[in-house]
């Protein structure tokens, strides 16, 4: 796989310096949105200007989980649902690095849901990019915590009997300092969002609605990847800075996208270092405006 046959292009693709080109073409299906999101992630990493030797990508299991295998950075392909706690350890052992967790809706919010909410609560300084294709693609298209009510999947052949939850609302409620959602066609906005997320200190979350033509799209007769991403894009409406609770994905009305949360909060390490200076008044005296925020000059 990946061997170059035929005319070698005179010029190199601009993203090649960040790609393990000996492993391209990659595994994702024709029309899948993960490649596009991956392209936006690479652009954002380059735009961040952070030294590439100190940028790491951690991914879990599933289609998006394979992203770490294609990026020419320190990259870690962990067990299903455990990308975020692995990244937590990686972050705390090397505070100066920049860490991206790229995984799918099932990996991050189903099996990995407990770790997702706690990393957000602790405000661990990582950027989580969730490629939401509304099902478990790698294993052939089963229902996931994102699958819309009554949508067909291989494990909800009649219709999904469950309501999905709103990832952005979940992230915001858990304490994320940056939350945004775009479709895989909002290329420029998505790249800018990932760049902003990379600059944020703390837990930043970017959700991308992405076409899955082979599994989810086929089961629900949504056409090719091109049609599906167009459908998501046409159905989307940009409503920046609204309450994430309102940022619903209602396929009968519209898919709300945009940037919903962009706040400042001390990270786990900020608070860890603050506490261990042993200068704070003992609890409960130290609760007037949140000692952590005050010490970080955020009050």
């Amino acid at each position: 796989m990946g061997a170059k046959r035929g005319r070698k292009p005179a010029l190199r693709h601009p993203q090649d310096d960040l790609l393990r080109t000996d492993r391209i073409p990659h595994i994702w299906c024709s029309g899948c949105g993960i490649g596009t999101v991956f392209s936006c992630v690479l652009s954002a990493i380059k735009k961040s200007g952070h030294p590439l030797d100190d940028v790491a990508m951690v991914s879990g299991i599933g289609c998006t989980g394979r992203m770490a295998g294609y990026v020419k950075l320190d990259s870690y392909h962990t067990t299903h649902g455990r990308a975020i706690p692995f990244a937590t350890g990686l972050r705390l052992a090397r505070p100066q690095g920049k860490i991206l967790v790229c995984s799918g809706d099932g990996d991050l919010l189903a099996i990995g849901g407990n770790h997702f909410i706690h990393a957000a609560r602790r405000n661990i300084d990582i950027t989580v990019v969730c490629v939401n294709n509304f099902n478990y693609g790698m294993t052939g298209g089963q229902l996931a915590p994102s699958t819309p009510f009554n949508a067909r999947t291989t494990t909800s052949p009649i219709g999904c009997p469950e309501e999905p939850f709103n990832f952005c609302h979940m992230a915001a409620a858990s304490g994320a300092v940056y939350v945004a959602r775009w479709t895989a066609l909002h290329i420029r906005r998505l790249t800018d969002s990932i760049s902003e997320a990379l600059q944020k200190r703390g837990f930043s979350f970017v959700e991308v609605l992405s076409p899955c033509p082979t599994s989810f799209g086929r089961r629900n007769k949504m056409g090719k990847g091109l049609d599906i991403v167009k459908y998501y894009h046409d159905k989307s409406v940009i409503r920046n800075n609204i309450d994430p609770k309102e940022a619903t994905l209602d396929f009968s009305t519209n898919l709300v996208v945009g940037k919903f949360v962009d706040i400042e909060r001390p990270t786990f390490l900020d608070n860890y270092q603050l506490i261990n200076k042993r200068e704070l008044p003992a609890w409960p005296a130290s609760t007037d405006k949140g000692a952590g925020k005050k010490a970080a000059g955020l009050v």
Binding site: G81, R82, G89, L92, A93, R94
Partner: peptide, 30 residues
């Protein structure tokens, strides 16, 4: 905390083991 180390109480043992692996790859003995 007093010797430049990190103690973190994770949300469960799955996360604890994952964090230990991550920290090891971050360069720390964990």
């Amino acid at each position: 905390p007093d010797i430049g180390g990190i103690y973190i109480q994770m949300e469960d043992e799955l996360a604890s083991m994952a964090a230990v692996l991550g920290a090891s790859w971050g360069g720390m003995k964990a």
